[in-house]
Design a protein around this nucleic acid. Sequence first.
DNA 1: ATCGTGACGAACG
DNA 2: CCGTTCGCCACGA
Length: 105
Amino acid sequence: MSIFRKNVLKIIAKIPYGKVASYGQIALYAGKPRAAREVGWILHQSETNPKIEIPWWRVVNNKGRVTIKGSYSNTPIVQQKLLIAEGIIFKRGLEFDIENYRWKT
DNA sequence: ATCGTGACGAACG
DNA sequence: CCGTTCGCCACGA
């Protein structure tokens, strides 16, 4: 397990209830400013290989859109539902105004 | 090593 | 507000 991967999981675990962060943000905080795609890959792996419990649904793309593909159990609808349950208002489809909920350090 | 792919992001047209 | 292109990074064939 790489150090970057460990940082990614640790940081995602810190996202507060009702807040979200982009893949790029997580990559930045974890020490690889341009590894947004890798963060997505790591989450994809964690889905079928859950070492620790993390609020994966609080990670979205930088435009405030749910871009997860309905892979295993974590589908776009499931993610949207979890976010709505935390108070996030969706505008249309899988989009919402991310600046109202973005987690900042 | 090369190539295609993806839960990304930013820049264009 | 689209859709496309390109740069980015790791994984697997």
